[in-house]
């Protein structure tokens, strides 16, 4: 944790343009990868690979473009809890759909 709570003066971490450029290139490379992967026959893994790459891109955007890597613990916790609740709601909905019409999903 680099923000050691020294509330002396307005110490907002400034992310350098170099990092932004690196993230931009990584995101473009991952976009090319996901498009290329969609042309390869991988059966169920087409969706798995595409979603894994999307999650990776999301993590890059959240950590660097949205500055979560450099933010306070409260903000980090907020983001994590949001993702957690979202996944929880999806799995509960799916559990309902899967178990109501057993065998016909």
């Amino acid at each position: 944790m680099n923000n050691a709570n020294n509330s002396s003066e307005h110490e907002q971490h400034i992310v350098s343009p170099k990092i932004y450029v690196v993230i931009l290139l990584a995101l473009l490379a991952l976009t090319a990868t996901t498009v290329a992967a969609s042309y390869v026959e991988m059966y169920v893994f087409n969706a798995v690979v595409a979603l894994a790459i999307a999650v990776l891109k999301m993590i890059l955007v959240v950590l660097f473009f949205m500055h979560i890597k450099y933010s306070t613990k409260l903000t980090k916790l907020t983001v994590i809890s949001g993702v957690f609740i979202f996944l929880g709601l999806i799995s509960m909905t799916l559990a309902d759909y899967v178990s109501r019409a057993w065998g016909r999903w």
Binding site: V35, A47, A54
Partner: peptide
């Protein structure tokens, strides 16, 4: 980033 693979690619 999520709409693109779900709607177009998978």
């Amino acid at each position: 980033i999520f709409l693109f693979p779900l709607l177009y690619l998978i």
